[in-house]
Write a protein that binds this DNA or RNA. Structure first.
Lengths: 243, 243
DNA sequence: TGTCTATAAATGTATATACATCTATAGACA
DNA sequence: TGTCTATAGATGTATATACATTTATAGACA
């Protein structure tokens, strides 16, 4: 029994469909360990490289998680991957040749945070919090405002890191691999301060992406304010090449 | 002369870096045809499968465009791919098991459009325009409002298509492959009508994605209104599995 | 001159094979 | 009992090979 559909698709696509079907119908629930590549190779009757390609692509698309030497697991719903894409617009712009610069507006350690901040961290007791505010520029034009609150007790030497080249999200992912992440995306009018730092008008609409990161206790809250008016749409026009 | 960096990366990553470097420094400008897989295989001293994997992944990431039998070309900046991700949130939600339903609110042919609409299409003369307004539901909750204006003269049988299962963007891409696309992303307060259809309050902030599609003349304008408040963040929390 | 066709060239897929690397664990050993 | 180690098993990478599919084009032919 192959278990693969018989439509006119490439084999690796059929394997992908097979896996997605098993996830979609609940046969393989969240965090379930998949059969090994070797087992799938036998049961589906295709080569290991074909199985491997299917699993690798599904991993890149956010449906699976793979650990070398251990196995392949069903990932949670992929909403966060989509949102992360949004949050990486800056680095993507940088990657395609635009000049990027980051300016640190605020960099402070709050030894005794007030209750509002503690509530944001879902904390019962007081602890120092690192606070930073960074503006990202593309070719000299401010495009993104990043506000970070990080639990200093749980992330050592946070203030020593380079704020201008590595994103907080990347940093936390590497320094504390077993973290939980929650994303909240919204659109809000710019405050006076936002307007001044981003060179926009007060009450202009901003796209806001909030990330909250845990390892048991909350360790970081990051707000990313991006002005998404006509300025940002520059260059997003796609013209196919002439024959 | 290999041209590949000598850091401790997998070969296919070095090939990807090699290609991205040539794009980034302007050596291979937009729409430039790359050397063939065979030529890269020779000049870089790696196997064709390794070159192929690198080019395939860069294509998936939006940096390249490949045409079987013809060659590989440098893509325009990848802003649009990121934005398309946003516009596909609905189908992604559907893919991960949530129930999706689409309701057609308006479906009409405008034989004599007014000047405002003609301006949006950048038209000199009058022509009929198909107008539709569709609400997308996730598990019964309205999450997205899609308004479409399509030039009937250039897209035949548009009103015959199934509005509830295929996106306009996918449809246009397949029916008229040589199109230009412009995206505009913004955040606006909801009008009374938006509020009523999306079950939100008037002036609640909405994320708006506008797509304009050409084949010489404008053929379609699509506005996607998505309420991105707390409702949408449900399920975007990522919890890694316990050991 | 125009049209059809065979062909070359390019990308797309599939497999077999080999080795590298990482992880958990069973078992030896102190 | 605790610790170290070898090993099995899983994923990761790289190559060689073969064939399929698509496209543009050169050349035959009417």
């Amino acid at each position: 029994m192959s278990g693969l559909s018989n439509t006119a698709l490439p084999l690796y696509e059929k394997v992908k469909d097979f896996v997605l079907d098993n996830i979609g119908n609940g046969n393989w629930p969240q965090n379930q360990k998949l059969p090994s590549e070797h087992e799938l190779t036998s049961s589906l009757g295709v080569s290991r490289m074909t199985v491997h390609r299917a699993l690798r692509e599904l991993t890149a698309e956010g449906y699976l998680r793979r650990v070398q030497g251990v196995g392949t697991f069903v990932s949670p719903p992929k909403a966060q991957s989509t949102l992360i894409e949004i949050s990486n617009i800056i680095s993507e712009i940088k990657a395609r040749g635009s000049r990027h610069r980051a300016e640190v507006i605020v960099l402070e350690r709050i030894e005794r945070p007030d209750q509002t901040l503690l509530d944001a961290f879902e904390f019962k007791r007081h602890c120092p919090i690192d606070h930073s505010l960074v503006v990202h520029y593309e070719n000299g034009v401010p495009v993104q405002l990043e506000e970070r609150y990080v639990n200093t007790e749980l992330v050592k030497n946070y203030l020593d890191q380079d704020f201008t080249s590595i994103g907080t999200y990347d940093y936390l992912q590497h320094s504390t691999p077993l973290t939980e992440v929650e994303h909240l995306i919204s659109a809000v009018p710019a405050t006076e301060r936002h307007a001044r730092l981003l060179h926009i008008r007060e009450r202009d609409s901003c796209l806001v992406l909030n990330r909250k990161t845990w390892t048991g206790q909350t360790i970081a809250t990051v707000n990313t304010f991006t002005y998404v008016g006509s300025r940002y749409s520059l260059g997003s026009r796609y013209l196919p090449p002439k024959k």
